[in-house]
Design a protein around this nucleic acid. Sequence first.
DNA 1: TGCGGCTATTG
DNA 2: CACAATAGCCGCAG
Length: 582
Amino acid sequence: MGGAGAAVVEELRRSGVARGDLVALAVAPGVGLGLATPARRAIPIAVEGPVAVLDHVERVLRPRWVLWSKDTAEQLVQAGLRVAACWDIAAVHRLLAGGWRAEPARAWAEVHGLAAETIPKTGPLDLFSHAEQLGGALDEPVRRDGHLSPEWAGGGWSATPDRLARWAELASSVAALQLGRLGGLPDQPRAVTVARSESAVELLCAELSVDGLPMDCGVAEEVIAGFIGPRPRTEDEAAAQRSRRDAEVLRHAPPGAPVDLRSPGQVRSLLRQIGVEVPDTRAWRLEALRHAHPLVDAILTWRKAERMATTFGYAWLDENLGEDNRLRGAWSGCDGAAGRMTASAGLHNMPADLRRAVLAEPGHVFVRADLGQIEPRVLAAVSGDEALARAAMADDMYAPVARQLGVDRATAKVAVLGAMYGQTTGRGLQALHRLESAYPVAMAYLERADRAGQAGHDLRTYGGRLLPMGASSPPAASEHEARGRAAARGRYARNAAVQGAAAELFKVWAATVRARGAQLGAGIVLCLHDELLVHAPVEHGDAVARLAEACLHEAAHRWAPDDSVRFVADISAIPRWSDAKG
DNA sequence: TGCGGCTATTG
DNA sequence: CACAATAGCCGCAG
């Protein structure tokens, strides 16, 4: 096998490929693989075990693999191969064009200046077997109108080394065009760097999905039992537990018709009967009335338990926690909006009570690292506001901001967050006005984004992600509604500019930790917007903690080389997630 | 059966 | 109670 790998390395070197250079890859187990280099040399390789060949190339040459999407990364990770670097065409397309859809035909159309609406549809006739019957259709992947042919784009073709190499060649050309596009963005000089980290995060996502989050099943069941009782053995037992919880609430209610506590409308009527009038029954509203009547308190307690029973209960464990005590969900490198990572299976919204069930494996610890006040610091960086950057020198930047505004810390914090979210009412409004004069550059940056959003003009984040603002909603029924919709777009844009830039920095950091942590046997097991959980051998806990800190500064410099803003992280090595001071 | 509304959880 | 996400149940329309 080393022979086949060595021959491929030799061929790549002849094609001018050195460490870190782009090499496009398409792979089919049992068939072989296709490679392509920027010199447009397509290399078909017929081999039983393509992954072993790739492993060799990775170890000797370590190129930047051009992949059409995370699918290939997942394929490789499943087969036991973790590559260091890639150029993920789908992830880069999402950066370049915004939104979430990023099939090969879209990425192709984008870099060739073709409208997405003109992409040929893959109809029901493009089934696997049918594509084969088309015979000649697979010979030419690019149609006369410039689009990728649906037969190729659909991926339904049966792989041969030659076709894989052709597919890789197409990927190689798209990557080169994407690179040119990103490099040519005049106001986003870091876009190429961001594209690389976004790509690396796709690899990380593939690994996160496969590896899962280490948990202690016993503790998890203990926590759940604390809310809803022991695991029911039968459906009847589960029903009995449910009605016991309901009865505990309803005994505080006046006698009458049975009330379905799961129906907000009926709960609202019930509350009206005891003299509590509310526009809706959200917890934050009921919280203020908790002591008005025992029923209110009972409802709030019931809601907590109901959440545990339905969303984070025993069924959730059974579905998502593996035999090996790893909680697994699907990870995405960016959402469809500002570009934050997303995860399913409760990995991003697990109730805080369950964090004590997140436990490192024997001989391991978690290094938990979370960024402090990332959004206002990022705002200072992307807007170039020197006064706000000076405030960011403090560990707690709301303290100097509060002094500057002449208000208390809590008010300063509300005002800063309000400015970034687009708050226009409530307390802190006066402090908001003072922000305008204290940090005019940052506030103008937000204002500019707000106006662009209102006008329906697309904008880009600092790192280059397109935020599409096209008015793609149904026509407003009234002037009032139209104004409200525009204001909402303005708030959205204002926030996305900051949240999106923060997501970029976070992902550069995550990619850096992923790369540097490998030497210490450390692997990221959870990403939570501004927080990393790294699983590391216990003897390297302190070293990994220092590494996470060093990686933050490296990442910040990579993302914004002028180093004008200080970023801080709270980092600790702990056996359980809940052990962090948080 | 599909979908919008309401609710809760996280950042 | 503004911004983002995932997710479950209810109630209504088809």
